[in-house]
Simulated assay, not measured.
Amino acid sequence: MAAAKITIGVARETAPGERRVALTPETAKKLVAAGTEVRIERGAGFAAGFTDEAYAAAGAQPVDNAAAALDDADVVLCVQPPPVERLRVLREGAVLVGLLAPHADPDRAAAITDRGLVAFPLERLPRTTRAQAMDVLSSQAGMAGYKAVLIAAQLAPRFFPMLTTAAGTIRPSKVLIVGAGVAGLQAIATARRLGAQVEGFDVRPETREQIESLGGKFLDLGVSAAGEGGYARPLTDEERAEQQRRLGEHLKGIDVIVTTAAVPGRPAPKIISAAMVAGMKPGSVIVDLAAETGGNCESTRPGETVEIDGVTVAGPLNLASSGAVHASEMYARNVYNFVSLLVRDPALAFDWDDELLAKTVWPERVAVDPGGPVDAPPASA
């Protein structure tokens, strides 16, 4: 008798405003070719431009509801975590892959552990060269950085490029991108394509070359916060005060700011103070890409666009979802590449010597897999 196939399930995303999907027809076809059975809730990809017919043509099975897609699945793929009540009825020991943020919701964390789910929150993935093809944070940040600049251009009461017209010459907008991670670099590139005069600011001095390679000017405020793993370290009180003073003076001549700075696992650092906003020119615009973790600007209101003494401050949420087609394509490829580490026809396999698995899995020690007991990952995971 032939062994049962690994079953992979995908349901509609339930988070408000979420348009992305964790599986595209392209990646469904690859998973089916790898010997798995793929079930997807009808309409799950529609908001991202993928029809049920396209999934069926790729070999996936469209099913009528989330229960049919997920409850008996060996592997559940998602963008944002399924509702807690859904987690509690997944098959015991099922594998869950997505942006799960278990520490953000005690009920979600309890559901994962109580059900013995083998959860892989992809935000925990080590950011190594080998992991680049699975790095959902980077792929989604690229879309967010792109969209943030388009929002800024729409809100700004001026052109971005220099124009020579019959009514005279229009000078280019001065745009400052705060933070030179993936989102920030994409924002710099996008603002340059729109013709703006672009500066990039980051407390990590090693980002100068990246900013300049995209045509931006590196804003050097004389304060360095180079840290480990490519992330910034927190500034001392003295460093922050000096940075604030110099940055505040500089912002008086800036037309548009896009902030993207983040410290993993912590609230977004406050870089733009209310006093700095008060010192900016009327008509200036700030788009705070860090709004979801508290914002880089003290005046940001997550999910809102407000005007403060003539300065517009926008705090958009889940920007990657607004580019759902390409964001989903990138995300689904990232997920497929990660799941390929697990899928070994005809069963799932966990190689806890692989740091990408051992350092991503949550909880850190796993005692159950879909086929029965397995060795826990090492204590250093």
Rank of each mutant, 00 (worst) to 15 (best):
5 K>W: 06
11 A>Y: 03
12 R>V: 04
13 E>K: 05
16 P>H: 08
17 G>C: 08
19 R>A: 12
26 E>L: 11
27 T>G: 07
28 A>T: 09
29 K>S: 15
31 L>D: 04
32 V>I: 13
35 G>D: 05
35 G>Y: 04
43 G>W: 09
46 F>L: 14
55 Y>P: 11
60 A>C: 08
61 Q>A: 09
62 P>Y: 07
66 A>T: 06
75 V>E: 01
75 V>H: 04
78 C>D: 04
88 R>Q: 13
92 E>W: 02
101 A>M: 10
107 D>I: 01
111 A>E: 09
111 A>P: 02
116 G>S: 12
117 L>R: 11
129 T>P: 02
132 Q>V: 03
132 Q>G: 09
132 Q>W: 07
134 M>N: 13
137 L>W: 04
143 M>L: 13
149 V>I: 15
153 A>V: 10
154 Q>S: 09
155 L>H: 10
158 R>M: 08
160 F>C: 06
161 P>H: 06
164 T>P: 00
165 T>K: 11
173 S>F: 07
175 V>H: 14
175 V>N: 14
176 L>H: 12
185 L>E: 10
186 Q>W: 05
193 R>T: 03
196 A>Y: 02
197 Q>E: 15
200 G>W: 03
206 E>C: 05
207 T>C: 03
210 Q>G: 04
211 I>R: 03
215 G>C: 03
222 G>P: 00
223 V>W: 03
224 S>A: 14
226 A>K: 13
227 G>D: 10
229 G>K: 09
230 G>F: 11
233 R>Y: 04
233 R>M: 08
233 R>K: 14
234 P>V: 02
235 L>Q: 04
237 D>L: 10
239 E>T: 00
241 A>Y: 06
243 Q>Y: 03
245 R>V: 00
250 H>M: 01
255 D>A: 00
258 V>D: 02
259 T>R: 03
262 A>W: 00
264 P>L: 01
268 A>N: 04
272 I>M: 06
277 V>K: 12
280 M>N: 07
280 M>H: 10
281 K>Y: 04
294 G>P: 02
296 N>I: 00
299 S>W: 05
301 R>L: 12
301 R>I: 14
304 E>K: 07
305 T>V: 10
307 E>M: 05
308 I>N: 13
310 G>N: 07
310 G>I: 01
316 P>D: 13
319 L>E: 15
323 G>H: 14
327 A>L: 11
327 A>P: 15
340 S>A: 14
345 D>G: 04
345 D>N: 15
347 A>H: 15
348 L>R: 13
357 L>H: 11
358 A>W: 05
362 W>M: 12
367 A>V: 09
368 V>Y: 08
373 P>I: 03
373 P>Y: 12
378 P>H: 10
